[in-house]
Structure formats: structure tokens, C-alpha cells
Design a protein around this nucleic acid. Sequence first.
RNA 1: GGACGCGUGGCCUAACGGUAGGGCUCCGGUCUCCUAAGCCGGUGGUUGGGGGUUCGAAUCCCCCCGCGUCCGCCA
Length: 580
Amino acid sequence: MADPFGTFEQQLHSALATVAPALGVHGALPITEVPPERTGHLAVPCFVLAKPLKVRPEEAALRLQAALETAASESRIELPGSLSTAGGFLNLTLEPARLAASVLEAVQDEGARYGHWPSSGTTVLLEHTSANPTGPFHVGRARNPILGDTLARVLRAAGDIVEVHYWVNDVGKQVVILSWGVEHMARLTPSAAEREKPDHQLVTYYQQANAAMETDPTVAAAVDARLRALESGDRSAREAVASGVREMLVGMQQTLRDLDVTIDVWDYESSLISDGSTKAVVEGLSSSPHAGVEEGAHFLDLAALGLGGKERFYFTRGDGTSLYTTRDVAYHRAKARKADRLINILGEDHKQQAAELAAALKVLDVPTLPESVFYSFVALPEGRMSTRSGRVVFIDDLIEESVKRAEAEVRARRPELSPEEWAKISRHVGIGALRYNLVRVKAAKNITFSWEEALSFDGDSAPFLQYSHARCAAILRKAAGAPAASSVQQFSTLTDQREQALLWTIGRFPSLVRQCATTLEVHHLPSYLNLVATECNRFYEHCPVLGAPQQAARLSLVAATKQTLGNGLRLLGIEPLEQM
RNA sequence: GGACGCGUGGCCUAACGGUAGGGCUCCGGUCUCCUAAGCCGGUGGUUGGGGGUUCGAAUCCCCCCGCGUCCGCCA
């Protein structure tokens, strides 16, 4: 496992630890990267040193520098570069050849594994998306599958053993309405849907059934009757509902495939009723000292459990039947038995519910509580998306439009390519652009949808990264197997500021991956890769490779850059392209 | 009304408590040379407002304002 950044950081850490006692410093000094200006690679703030030493921060930095340099000259520590001070900071600038060798050897050794950590042994059950099977995915909640799928990839890279689950809501009123609509409306009118996909076909029946229910009491009665039949275990009701859900999921799964989102396991809510686990939850919660009953309905006293806001968490109706929340508790209790860690990707509308769920799980002494990643909705300028009001943008439409625009670009730029190549490139560019745009912003941030932004192909975008990757590929193709650098002496020719900047950035990839996994924040990844691509383009512009005296070393750098961009893009679920 | 989250140049956005970086737009350069979806330069900021903690606050605490979400024996 190679981690150039971590290795250099460790060296500096241990050097500081060796020298600290002589300076009268107790705890370890913090180390921070220095992004702006070219003051160095690693910085040590010396402000905390100033007080005990009774000197100004600048002076403290100078003393620390002197102590380190003395120790280095006496071979008590090893410094991988040179020291300088600026303000109250002590800066370490890595020795260029050392940086180049460390980074390039790491990438050469690990290839497609660069940035991936050894197994942690931790099993993670990651649940995401879990949208109700009542209609096509719309953009409002589109961050869910993208965040979830990206996080799954990142956690795996960080060494976790991840299983991705989707919880299908196949009980309750909504799916009953769907099944009723499919049976009764489909016969009457042809679907108004523009797409052949089953989810688009079926949602029209669902909408018609909803409308019919409002105007026709007999429809509402029929739906209620079926709901009761379903809950009492009636076989034909169950089959009718299951068939509607099945067909709807066929269409929804196609969209996930289009986005390159992978679900490992499909869990069905109905199974939690049939296997008795929901009933067990009711019994378990009822016996809690915090449980109460009112008119037959059971609840937990949330205030007594230390939760503000809502007073009661109901887990049965007055007639004793279970609620969605009850099944949610049963589901998480079951999941907790299957993994060391549970992670859920949830819309911000689930925040309160997640807290109540956790409280209920604690009452049941479930040892593993779910960790939640909340995201804000993608709204339209005129407000929140809603399928019923027709104020929606479907993900399928967004994909189609994005790929279409990408194809227009590719055809214009690369008229010599074949139609097959056009199709392949535009598909990966179009879908990549969408995925990128949905993960580049911190999950908690509100997003207002705009076609212009969603379909941006330049600047901070997937095509920008893919383009840099393709440029690297072009150079390597033309080099046609010319030897790459392998000796430190060759690496030492990479002294240009763009080369050094690129090397340093590439060397931070493994630690960046781990940071994303630790914080469960994937937006750092696009931000980082954008920096790699930017520095790659600067290098490309100012440092000719083919035919240059330092060709071998530069080829190594190009290969390492391509590898890092490619590995990073794959973590984002975006296809790295050899040409575009 | 209460709870949780968000508020960074015209627009979008990043930043373990450590010198506010990017992108889009706009203006000016740049393809006989490895792909110009690029590169180089420029305009534009008292990080919603006010207090506090700290050597140091976009970041932590308090108050206010604006936006989002939730507050069902629905899912």
C-alpha cells in the first residue's frame, strides 16, 4: 500500500516528535497542507509554540527549524526536504527528485489499485435510493443513487467490505393504488406516456387511479378493501400488488443501470411482515417502560427518550396493525445483524424520522445504529418537484438530453470518428456530466435545477476530467511503448513547477480517498480530481513530452496522471475515455 | 410556533480553527507544435447582519434575518 502524502507526513511527524521535548513542547504539533503560494508542501503552525517559549510565532518557527536542522545534521531524524519559515509557519518543501520517485514508483507499482487501501475487515451495509415503486425516478431525489453508489465505491477503495441494499416498499396504500390502476385503467385508455419504459407506462395508471379515487368513492372503497386484503395475507391481493411492483421496478432498474449504479441486494418490505419480524418489534417495543397505549394504538414516549419535537412515536394503529415506521425498525434490526456498520443515504425529509428510528432501536438494545448521510432536494426554480403535479424532470429525460448534447459536441469536434465511437463517447460524456454535477456539491446544500448547469461540459465537469485523461492517453499512444523512467536519476529531471505541482497532487490521492470514506463526504473527490486535471492541462501546455530530453520521465508522469484520473473517475462511476 | 440543515464576488461552489481557492459569465491574448471540452492574463469578496471565544473565525458559541425540510394511529 503506497501513500506518498501520508509517508511524507509521517516523516515530518516523527521528526517533530523527536525534536519536541528539547523545545519543551508537550503535545504533537498540528500539520497542515499549504495550498496557496509556493511556500512548501507541508506546514507546521507554530503559534501554540509561541506562548510556552515566550517568543513571537515567527521566532518560534525559526527555533523549531533550527532544532530540526540540527537533529538532521546529527542523523537523529530524516528530513525529506528543506525548511523555511513564513509568518508563524514552518514550511517543508520536499526535495523534487524524492517527491517524483515516491509518487511515480507508487503509481507504477499499484496501477489500477493506486488509491485503494488494504482490507479493513469492516463490513458495511449501505442502503440508498429505496424510492417507492410508484413511478420513474425524478431529478428531485437524484442525488440519492449517485451519492450512494459513489460512496459504495469509495468505501470499497478504503478497504471496507460493502453490500448495497435497496429497500422496496411493496406494502401499503401507494402500491395498492398502483396495482388497482394497472388492472382497471390500463384497459380503458392507452398510456399517455411518451416512453416505452414500464415505469413511465405504469405511472400514468397510478396517476389516473389517484385521480379516480378523489372523485369516485367506489374506487376509494375498492382500494381500501384491497389494502385490508393485503394486510390479512390474501393471496390474490398480494399477487396483484407484487406484479405491479415487479413491472415498475423493471423500468426503474433500467434507469439505475443507465447511470451505472449497482444494487447488490433488493429487500422487500412485505417479507418483514411475513417472517414475523415486524410483530417481534411490536412486542419488543410494547414491553419498554417508555411505551404507552392510547385507544389501542401503541407508542413510545419520545420526550422520555430524550428527543425533542414530536411527543410520540406510534408503532401500531388502534386496530393493532403495523405502521411503516414499525417495519423500518424491523428492517434496521435485521440489517444490524448483517454488518458491522449501517449507512443510509436519506433525503433531508427523513432527518427527524431517523432520530426517532434510532431511539426505537436503542429501546430494543440493537447494538448497531445506522449512520445517516442526508442530502437536500434538487428543486426547480418554481419549487419542489412532484410527480403528481407534473412539475418534474425525470432522470430518464435528463440522461437523454445530456447524451444528445454530448453527441452533438463529439460529432462537431471529431468528424472523423465512426458512428459507434460517437455513440460510445457521447454516452459516457453525457452520463458522466450528470453524475459529476450531482456529487460535486456538498450533500447538505440546497440545489436548484437548471439545464444549463446540469449539462455543463466545461470547467468543473466530468468531460473536463475525461478530456485530460484522453490527452494523456493520446501521448502514451503516440509514444508507442517508448521506455518510461524507472531510475531516481531520471525522475530527478521533473523539476518544472507544473511537474512538481502535478506530482504532489497525484501523491495525495490515497489520503484523499480515505478522507472521503472517513467523513462519508464524497464531494471532495470531484473537487480533487478537478485539480489533478487542471494541473495536468497546465503540464500538457507547458511541458512537451515526445521528443523532449526528459521524455522518459515525463512519460512516467503522464502515465501516472492518467492512472490517477482513471482510478478517480471510476470511483465516481464515470468512464475514463481513451479519446474524445 | 418548535426542531434540524443551509446562506461565500452578477450566477454556482471549495476550504482538519491557520494567508478565502475554483468554475460560469464578462474583457483581452493563444491552434504550421503530443486533442483549443484546453492554456495565459484581467474585472469582480468587509464569507447574510450583530455580538462573543481565540494568538488567529467562512469554520466554534449566542441573538437576529432569509431559504429548505420536518413536526399524521401516511408512506
